[in-house]
Simulated scan of single mutants.
Amino acid sequence: MGIEEPTGKLERVYRALNRELRAQRFEVERRPFSPHLTLARVKTPLDPVAQQDLQALLQSKQQGLTTNEAYAITSLHVMKSELSRGGAQYTLLRECQFQR
């Protein structure tokens, strides 16, 4: 699910994080930044009919759903994800508090 963030603050955090990661010689993401929430993962690609059904379901749930509500982001969590047969395992590596 995409996130609309007109102020560009998430983009600035992303760029600052990438600068620091590069400085520490970590490999960084090469794809363009796209703020989003992952709602679900599927193990195998959906066939076209299932994709259309899922899209219709999501659109029906979004109708009439709009918000101008702002959410305060107080920290950044650096997570490690490991995929296994039982699903993804997530481990918090570091929490960085933002200054107000």
Score class of each variant (00 low, 15 high):
K9L: 02
R19W: 03
E20H: 11
M1K: 13
G87I: 05
P32G: 06
S84W: 00
E5V: 06
V28N: 09
A50L: 13
P48Y: 06
E69Q: 13
A56H: 12
G8A: 07
L46F: 09
R22W: 08
F33K: 10
T91A: 08
R85L: 12
F33Y: 10
T7S: 14
L57F: 15
L37G: 13
V78D: 04
V78R: 11
Y90K: 00
R30I: 03
Y71V: 14
A23P: 10
P6E: 08
E29M: 03
F98C: 02
Y90R: 03
Y14L: 07
L57E: 12
H36R: 02
Q52K: 14
L93N: 13
I73L: 13
P35T: 02
A88D: 02
A56F: 09
H36S: 03
P45F: 00
Q99D: 15
P45Q: 11
T44R: 14
Q51D: 03
E27F: 01
G87K: 03
L93H: 12
R30T: 12
R30W: 04
H77C: 15
T38H: 01
R12M: 05
G87T: 04
G64N: 06
L46I: 04
E5G: 01
K61E: 11
L65I: 13
R41F: 04
A88Y: 06
D53R: 12
G8C: 06
E11L: 00
